[in-house]
Design a protein around this nucleic acid. Sequence first.
DNA 1: TTGTAAGCGTTATCAA
DNA 2: TTGATAACGCTTACAA
Lengths: 340, 340
Amino acid sequence: MKKKITIVDIANHLGITPSAVSKAFSDHPRISDKTKKAVRQAAEQLGYHQNTLATGLRRGRSGLIGVLVPGIHFSFFSTIIKAIEETLSEKGYSVIISQSRDQLAKEIRQLDNLMKAQVEGVIASVSLETNNSAHFQKICKRIPVVLFDRTLRDLEVSKVVVDDYMGSIKAVDHLVEKGYRRIAHIGGLSHVEPFRIRQEGYRAGMQKHGLEILEGYEQSSKLTVADGESIMNDLLKLPSPPDAIYAASDLPAYGVIKCLKERGIAVPQEVGVVGFSNEAYTEMVSPTITTLEQHSENMGLIAAKSMLEQLQHQYDDKEYVPQQSTLTPKLVIRESSNRK
Amino acid sequence: MKKKITIVDIANHLGITPSAVSKAFSDHPRISDKTKKAVRQAAEQLGYHQNTLATGLRRGRSGLIGVLVPGIHFSFFSTIIKAIEETLSEKGYSVIISQSRDQLAKEIRQLDNLMKAQVEGVIASVSLETNNSAHFQKICKRIPVVLFDRTLRDLEVSKVVVDDYMGSIKAVDHLVEKGYRRIAHIGGLSHVEPFRIRQEGYRAGMQKHGLEILEGYEQSSKLTVADGESIMNDLLKLPSPPDAIYAASDLPAYGVIKCLKERGIAVPQEVGVVGFSNEAYTEMVSPTITTLEQHSENMGLIAAKSMLEQLQHQYDDKEYVPQQSTLTPKLVIRESSNRK
DNA sequence: TTGTAAGCGTTATCAA
DNA sequence: TTGATAACGCTTACAA
């Protein structure tokens, strides 16, 4: 491995001082154009890369932003991270990613690592196990924090969420309009914000139409395909089985359809199905699945912009008031609920 | 924002010197247990986080690894990054991600940013536009580089790839065994390593069975669903249309099936289809798609381990010889090719 | 067992 | 227009 080139090397090379080189790089107004040109050329020639560790140490700004999610292999999260990285790298920041694997202990450890790396801000979606905000409370006293999707109720920071309540209302409205009446809900773990709210919205939607939520119509799960299948199986055993399912995620919606197909129950004619997230496969499977688009890419963009804004406020020493951005989910009507 | 706590604060708090505090943290043998305990406690109490910028600067090791991919929203890449992050964070490294968006210019810029951030190594999969290795040549002189999947032929670094050649052979063998004879190939851009090799494998497979590759049976594309559809459409217009398609990726394979279904051509009875990658949806759509599993998670793991190994060699000042790890793809037989 | 002091690469403040 | 110097927070010989 070759030795590292520093501004001292460039300075020696040109017979000037490191200080002048530094100023040349930052386009200092009182450095001659000739020197600036010479410096850039020497840098190119010697293969110089500014050491942002040193710059960061000196200026108290690392240029690093931490992103913490349950797992980046979920397309929802990876899409968001894509947008975040694009937006932040545009502004000269680097993005450190870390995963909680949906474990609180790991989330705490990872947050700690991010702090050690001197990130200037953290954008996060909390783990399924996260039931208190103590670890985030400490952080957000020091640096800007933006939470998205899976947020923490008692944390006063900027948040980006989709209007889960309205999403549920839209789903129920649609099913009712299509003539379904006995609508069941397959929810996620209810201590997680979006899932709690989706359930509330479901209830409100049912009430709005004067529909009763029968015993056993509200199920909670980990939202896997298998969960969808087994819950649908159970629902069919009910004295009055549902004629429609609104699932809080696409995977269980697919599981439900799989179960129904195997039992020869026609979708959407006999049973209607609506999912949540608009994952790519919802328009590939058959029947294609009606679902709620939550604009993940946009969510990442907004989260990143909110972070940039807070950072800016900090440099300007202005006060920043946390904001919540709520995106309106869009119902994408496909075959699984679209009966005549 | 509160002021930052440093070892100086801890030292003052305890009436000792920063040097003692530093040693206490690194578990120096000649520091009393009493002091160590006191230091840890004070750190906890004051909310201290080690500043890895400073540590990195001092020790010449940032603890940062850069990962550069075309885009993290592709499930293949996000799965790999997941494994990389898990493996590296285990060993105390942080992972900076960056995306090339399949543009050479952006790849160069991002690599430069990673160098500035003083990453200790780079794990990358190159962009579709990358047709020369100059930018990587410079980097790999300085720090360890590991390439995966989309590698560069003339770059002598460690690589992790799937045996694309054998994958193609397996696909063709399987199709032939199922009685298909007029097998066409939908490939990717052939200047990209894996796609070039898949095509070679396809040719070798055909030859092995004494099958002729008819005019128009070899198609190159950007591997989208739409590409699959339109190419299949064209293929059907051929004087002797194929009775099987081997696509270099799952998306076009799906597109092919979509086209065939619309035209009422039975899959797999009339035409067989095989894809590549084993994306999640291949077992969700109908018919389910026969495809090649490329063990992405494992690929990430191996890439990360290779990086760790090189880093270790570097600290030990031992020579490291670049290695190529080749994973054997596994044919996952599903409905789209499994006729009786 | 702990303290002293120099230095990692950079930038900001002053002086020249 | 440029140079000298101190400092950012930490580590590490060496000294005490």
